[in-house]
Amino acid sequence: MNYFIKLGLVLLLITVIASGILAYVNGITADKIKANKVLAEQEARKKVLSAASRFEKHTKSLPAVKKEPNPLKNVEVTGDRQFVYYLGYDKDDQLAGYTFVASLYGYSSEVKTMVGVDLDMSISKIKVIEQAETPGLGANAATADFQNRFLGMDQEQLKVDKDGGAIKSLTGATITSRAVTNSIAEGMKNLKDAVNGEDK
């Protein structure tokens, strides 16, 4: 019996020492990790709306959509959805434009795009920030070549050429191109509603 107790104690001791050291390292790094995330988003916003130097978060609630709950996941199925967008102010504190994140499932993954919009409601710049599409095909949505096709586009033009719009889709990656374009179009619509809703 004593033998097992000794084994257990040694294990416990090592675990406690290890946990203590890790708690210490965690303490040092936790803040930096949080800060990194915020910084990354800020960087992406600056990239798509270069005139802006300060961003202010706004939200607008969207009409509830009946979402089928996934019985296997912990996803919240509350009725209210929120559209999150940012107002961008330049150095002189003048409104320079807006940014929002457009998101839609593409071919094999959720494709997230940071969109910068000028005051005239045309696209300033976009940047695909998250995707796991097929390398060489859908993944090319993250290239400058594809993203540049959106410069200056406004609401009406935001459809892929196959659907009658002005965005030339990627060769062999129609689904991904459509996902990006349609998600941006929907985001624009929400942005217009939100901006017109508040009297600025």
Partner: peptide, 13 residues
Amino acid sequence: ASFVTIVDLVMNA
């Protein structure tokens, strides 16, 4: 596992 966690946290930061 302890060193792996240290590497994980430091790289994340």
